[in-house]
Deep mutational scan, measured.
Amino acid sequence: KYSDMIVAAIQAEKNRAGSSRQSIQKYIKSHYKVGENADSQIKLSIKRLVTTGVLKQTKGVGASGSFRLA
Rank of each mutant, 00 (worst) to 15 (best):
Q25W: 10
Q25H: 08
L69T: 04
S19W: 04
Q11D: 04
S3L: 09
N37E: 12
R68D: 05
K26G: 06
S40Y: 14
Q41W: 13
T51N: 12
A63Q: 10
Q57S: 07
K33C: 11
V7C: 10
V61I: 11
I28C: 04
Y2V: 05
V34Y: 03
I24Q: 00
Y2H: 02
G35M: 05
R21Q: 12
R16F: 09
A17F: 14
I10P: 01
Y2P: 02
I28L: 03
K59F: 08
V7D: 01
I10T: 01
T58H: 07
Y32G: 02
Y27H: 03
R68C: 12
V61N: 11
S45P: 01
A12D: 05
R21N: 07
I24T: 00
I6K: 15
S66M: 14
A8L: 05
L44R: 15
G65S: 14
Y32I: 03
K47A: 12
G65C: 15
V7K: 06
Q25V: 15
A17M: 13
L44I: 11
L49K: 00
L44Q: 10
S30L: 10
S3Q: 10
Q11I: 12
I42G: 01
I42E: 00
A8V: 05
A8T: 06
N15T: 06
D4E: 13
L69K: 03
R16D: 10
Y27T: 01
S19T: 07
Q25F: 11
A17E: 10
G62I: 05
I10E: 00
F67Q: 02
S3I: 11
Y27W: 10
A9K: 00
Q11H: 13
M5T: 00
K59I: 08
K33F: 07
K29S: 06
G18F: 04
K33V: 11
Q22F: 08
G53T: 00
Y2T: 02
V54F: 06
I46L: 13
K56C: 15
Q22N: 09
G65R: 13
K26Y: 07
Y2M: 10
R68K: 11
F67D: 02
K14F: 07
S45V: 14
E13A: 10
K1V: 09
Q25G: 08
K43I: 14
V54D: 15
I42T: 00
R48S: 07
G53A: 03
V54H: 04
K56L: 14
V7P: 01
R68W: 11
S64G: 13
G60E: 05
I46T: 01
S23T: 08
V54C: 07
T52P: 00
L69H: 03
A63M: 11
I28H: 00
F67W: 06
Q11V: 11
K29F: 09
R68V: 14
Q22M: 09
G18K: 02
M5K: 03
G53W: 03
S30N: 08
A9N: 02
K56V: 15
A63R: 12
R48Q: 10
E13D: 11
